[in-house]
């Protein structure tokens, strides 16, 4: 289970530019570390973040081992319509986690 935290305003005026924040619990294990017995700790990272607004991807992030554990991102959206926002994180094996939020445009 990966906990996800989202910060999306519930409402916005039409054409207002809003800040969106998203964070997910994930170790982002680099593959460069070694364990107590010298063994390489295998890489385990989220490689892709996508955010959809009314079904359409408007922002994407491609993550590499240089992204810190428990990835945090903030970005902006121009609020044009009342619609659902879908946030999706996908790891290197294809497993994904998602969360949604509804933005009401007045």
């Amino acid at each position: 289970m990966s906990t996800i935290r989202l910060s999306v305003p519930e409402t916005a005026k039409k054409n207002e530019i809003i800040e969106i924040k998203a964070m997910i619990q994930h170790p982002m294990e680099t593959g460069y570390r070694r364990g107590m017995r010298g063994e390489v700790i295998e890489r385990d990272i989220i490689t892709l973040f996508e955010c959809r607004y009314d079904g359409e991807i408007f922002f994407e992030g491609e993550f590499h081992p240089g992204i810190a554990a428990n990835p945090f991102l903030s970005f902006y959206l121009k609020a044009t319509k009342t619609a659902e926002l879908v946030f999706r994180w996908t790891d290197q094996t294809g497993q994904s986690w998602s969360e949604t939020a509804t933005l009401t445009v007045t």
Binding site: T3, R5, S7, K21, M23, I24, Q25, N70, F72
Partner: peptide
């Protein structure tokens, strides 16, 4: 919001 410890609180 940004404090990563809040992931555990949540």
């Amino acid at each position: 919001f940004e404090n990563p410890g809040l992931l555990w609180v949540e």
